[in-house]
Nucleic acid binder design. Sequence first.
DNA 1: GAGTGGTCTAGACCACTTC
DNA 2: AAGTGGTCTAGACCACTCC
Lengths: 261, 261
Amino acid sequence: MSISISENERRAWDRRTPYYLRVRDHLAGLIEAGTLAVDSRLPAERDLSEAFQITRVTAHQALIQLEMEGLIYRLNRRGWFVSPPRLRYNPSVNVSFTRNVTASGRMPGTAVLGRREVASTPWLREKLGAGHDDTIYLVERVRLIDDRPVLVEHIHLNAKYCPGLLTLPLEVSLTDILEQHFGIQLRRASVQLHPTALTAAQAEALGVSAGLPGLKISRAASDQNGNIIEFDQEYWRHDALEVHVDVAVDALPRHVGSGDD
Amino acid sequence: MSISISENERRAWDRRTPYYLRVRDHLAGLIEAGTLAVDSRLPAERDLSEAFQITRVTAHQALIQLEMEGLIYRLNRRGWFVSPPRLRYNPSVNVSFTRNVTASGRMPGTAVLGRREVASTPWLREKLGAGHDDTIYLVERVRLIDDRPVLVEHIHLNAKYCPGLLTLPLEVSLTDILEQHFGIQLRRASVQLHPTALTAAQAEALGVSAGLPGLKISRAASDQNGNIIEFDQEYWRHDALEVHVDVAVDALPRHVGSGDD
DNA sequence: GAGTGGTCTAGACCACTTC
DNA sequence: AAGTGGTCTAGACCACTCC
């Protein structure tokens, strides 16, 4: 793999620009120009360090930077690759991951990691609005786009509303299962999200190394009767999605002149 | 600063646990236990490397890890500090940053970086639903919580609906200004967000180093007449907020048995 | 077996902050 | 002047993947 640095780039680099940012800029340029296609491999760290006359540590730092920006991803000890575009995700429309991915012209996948009954905790009972004696199901799955794992999810369900669910095939639509077997239609959801770092367990499920940036999305969904059916915790690759949501701004009483925005 | 590693910790560490994760675990424990209070400084990198018998590079890597998890933040060449809790932010309720921060028992702040008319671009006209001849205002501000910058925002407004806005004091509530001076009530918003890395300019405005993780939030807000008034782009510190939103799930026609969720 | 990234050492100089 | 993080060098060994 040959790497060439253009004169334009050399001129753009301030003498005080850290080397790792120069490498970053060079690679970002190749990616934006399409010279490096989606999912194609970047030059090896040792090649980059030779081309830029820097050490591998510095080349590695440049790649970390690009990873944080969501431009590239890595496959453990196989190399660095150009990230595909983000999936648009609207929690009030895209109840179905699979349908959303398909509509984007890409290939969805699901792997079930586990299914079992779990002991309820005060925290879990509060999230599900469940009683002390309610049975709680837990379904753990990984979702993929074009064979690349993008999120791991832990779905807690109140067994009261879907008895026997764990015996059904869970590689398919949970929403469909709830509707067809139990007459449940999800109507409202309370969604929370924040940036985080992936733990070792989550990273392993996604086939990446621990500590990478991620986005945690929690969602409590209730049905047409106002019962909370499921509480879902999703850990997304930070570079895999773009959240869209339309909201009505509540017309709250305002203290005129309270001096803020 | 003395650093001591407990026997429990030593036992918990697998022989193959990387050193930088051991340091991470140790510090995370101190933070969660409250031994290290919010906004207090961590031991210097050189002290950590001595205490753990590792090099500074490895100690630095542990701190980077904690930063990505949102547990700590850094002040340029001054040290590493324990992060305060995240601000809860609900785009359909918290139209006011200041009011939201105040309600959380913390102190909000605003600094105006710039205010000017800007040339419209096709992209901007589309976002604002504006015509070729519409004048566009740009307001750039930094918002602070307890004197710590947490976001930088670029607000584009269609001057047609708020002529002369730039001559008003902009350190206060834009929402209030729109309502009191122009009779505008924001009623709907279209919100997009995704994890990103902060650019050099954004990082400088937030007083942090470039390339740190961040969350980009874009919002187009329209008034009681359905006119798009403003298009806002916010770049948040990734550790500063937690987004909450309640959504109604659209009852879309479903293809029964289409095999997804 | 060759190639790749994962991790680490033992230093170094620099820019900036604090005193 | 002393202390801090920011960046970098020139190596090294390891675990894993690919062929």
